[in-house]
Amino acid sequence: MLSAVWTNLIPMIKLYMLGFKVLLVQLFSRRFKLPVMPRQDGKVAIVTGGARGIGFEVVRHMARLGAHVIIGGRNEEEGLAAVRKIREEHKEAEVEFIKLDLASLQSIRQFVQRFREQDLQLNILVNNAGVMLVPEGRTEDGFEQHFGVNYLGHFLLTWLLLDILKTSGKWGHFSRVVNVSSSAHRIGEIRLNDLNSNQCYSAHAAYCQSKLAQLLFSSHLHQELQRGGFPLSSCAVDPGIVDTALYRHLWMPLLLAHNVIAHLLFRTPSEGAATVLYSALSPELEGENGGGFWANGHREMTTPLTFEPQLQLSLWQASLQLLGLQ
């Protein structure tokens, strides 16, 4: 019993200490302002979780630049409302909603099928949707929710769209996969023998594991694409601590504090979207300059664990097996 308490308490303490450190850095750092990005006419983008928060700001900005943007989300009413709002602001905006529940492998496959039926190219995939510190539970297919939604769902989505992303890219105009992660990856551990947290559940540990898994996936994918010579890059982004609904499952005392200080210390969704947009659109990140891990408008070094080839490969192979992929 005591062991289980410590298993839950230690990751929680580590995550909240990291959060406090990140808030201090944000407080004393100049916030990245997105430079003017080139027009995106003719390009097609998919943004998961694009109906609110950071994702909505990403969709809105891309649509304003002329891209055809598809919002993937599980709440149809919310998604259609986001589409209407963007079209009201920009009457010529090409934006649409397709239902996507990342907690359901069937829903992911149906989303990809509906997208394929439109016979569109795909230049940008922003894997943005996610859950944080949710109570213990399983996805439709039996995966732990953080691992299943934040990581495995996006793994499958990317895998099923890879052929379109590859053929849509051109030399000098690479397609891009942008994985929205978190500084929480720095204290994450990959438990290859217990990826679904069956042995002992900690929401904090599970969340951090899912964010580290995203970085390992992003890095391994980028290397595979480079080795294959494809005009497609993959990078990961930390948007910082942003004032969104993601924090509604915080420990209660911190949740009450969050409601008081968020507007003072947290970044706005627009500010959080800035580095995501930079990674997805900037000509400076073309070709060999793509990839890596980005935060506050700059490429950053991350933990040595992220670059461990054997861990990347082991997680990749385990993911393929869990998803029933070749």
Rank of each mutant, 00 (worst) to 15 (best):
T303I: 09
V134T: 14
T139W: 05
R227I: 05
Y247G: 06
C200K: 14
Y16V: 05
A213W: 02
K33V: 07
W316V: 11
L18A: 06
V131S: 14
K91A: 14
S218A: 15
L34V: 10
S197M: 06
L195Q: 09
E189P: 00
A245P: 15
N296T: 03
W159K: 14
H185S: 05
D243R: 10
E94G: 01
H61W: 08
A280N: 03
W6M: 11
V276T: 14
K91Y: 08
V276E: 11
K14L: 14
G153K: 06
E89P: 02
S319I: 09
L34P: 10
G130Y: 05
T303K: 01
V178E: 10
E286I: 02
Q209T: 00
P38A: 01
A81H: 04
D194W: 00
L23M: 07
G42L: 09
V47N: 08
T303A: 03
F293Y: 13
S210N: 10
T244V: 03
Q312Y: 00
G137Q: 07
S202V: 12
S234Y: 03
I108P: 07
A295L: 02
G153P: 12
V47Q: 11
G324H: 03
N179Y: 01
K14Q: 15
S233E: 01
K91S: 15
S197T: 04
G50I: 01
H185D: 09
G142A: 06
S182F: 06
G290N: 04
E288C: 11
Q209A: 03
L254Y: 13
L2K: 15
H154R: 05
L162S: 10
L24P: 02
Q226W: 06
